[in-house]
Simulated scan of single mutants.
Amino acid sequence: MASYPRRMTDEKRYHHGDLRAALLDAAEAELAERGVEGFSLRQVARRAGVSHAAPAHHFTDAKGLLTALAAEGFHRFLAAQASREARAAPDPRAQLLAAGLGYVDFALARPALFRLMFGSDRADFSNPDLDAASDAAYGHLMAQVAAIGGNQTDAAAVWSCAHGLADLLSAGRLKPLGGLSAEARDLALSAILTRSFPAPAG
């Protein structure tokens, strides 16, 4: 009990928005270390240096916090794609390829968050914020595929290819690519991803 007043004092250092961000950062660190199965609000509070009640006050329960973290994950996912797109040629095919590489970048940088977003039932996808964030990511894919003349079936093929590569690499299962340099891996990934694109018109 002696540590509780200190944590309450530490909590006062945060503004409302800063505390929420700090809890999300702590939640991602907890998720990366312990996985979804070992995830707890108490440990998140300890990592953030705040009272045990703070996460529940902001997110209600563990599912609420994981839902908010997944929503934030989709924003970061789009940011990873945007980073690649900013360095690519402006034509639609190059932009779609860059987005695919950004997809892989995100999975490799944040494998636990990636699995929460795409392979776990612990987040509530009926939550409006998470639903909007995931829809934005899918909408980005659909817009890029449409820009090269593709349809929903083509989008499914592109998504399946990018996601499969990201999942296998982040899990360490795609050993032939895992041992390559970043540059060589990008070249190999680019060759694979472009095979999922609709054929150019003409």
Rank of each mutant, 00 (worst) to 15 (best):
D61P: 00
W159M: 13
V145R: 01
L116M: 13
A199R: 03
A143F: 09
S170N: 08
F125R: 09
S134C: 12
L97Q: 10
A98L: 13
Y14N: 06
E30H: 11
A182V: 01
S40F: 09
R34T: 10
L116Y: 14
V50H: 06
R46E: 09
L113S: 14
A133P: 07
L168I: 00
E28V: 10
A147H: 03
T153N: 08
A184C: 04
R195P: 02
D105V: 08
D105C: 05
A171L: 06
L65E: 03
K175M: 08
A184G: 03
E183V: 15
L193S: 12
R93T: 01
A109G: 14
D61Q: 00
A45F: 06
H163F: 15
Q43E: 09
A109C: 12
H15L: 00
S181F: 07
D25I: 12
A112V: 10
V158K: 12
M8W: 05
T194Y: 01
E11I: 04
L174A: 06
S126V: 00
K63H: 11
A155P: 03
L177M: 05
L65T: 01
E30R: 09
R34S: 02
L130N: 07
P198W: 03
G149Y: 04
G172V: 08
K175H: 09
L31N: 02
R110K: 12
G49K: 05
T194M: 14
L169A: 09
D25G: 14
T60C: 13
R42S: 12
L174E: 04
P92R: 01
H163P: 04
E85W: 04
P176F: 04
A88I: 00
L65R: 00
S160H: 12
A143S: 15
A166N: 11
G178R: 06
V158C: 09
A22E: 12
L177A: 04
V50F: 06
A71I: 01
A45D: 08
I148T: 05
K63V: 09
Y138V: 15
P90A: 01
L96F: 05
A82L: 01
D61A: 01
F77K: 15
L130D: 07
A146L: 06
M1Q: 14
Q152G: 11
S126K: 09
F118E: 10
A112C: 08
Q152K: 11
A70N: 07
S134Q: 15
Q152R: 13
L116C: 13
A182I: 02
R110W: 02
F197I: 08
L113C: 12
A86G: 02
G102D: 03
A32M: 04
R122L: 12
A155R: 06
K175W: 04
E183Y: 07
E183D: 14
A82G: 10
F59T: 00
A2L: 13
R195K: 14
Q144T: 02
R110Q: 14
A86W: 03
L41G: 10
C161Q: 15
E11Q: 13
A123N: 01
R46T: 06
D61K: 02
A27C: 09
L193E: 11
L177G: 03
S126Q: 12
H52C: 08
H52R: 11
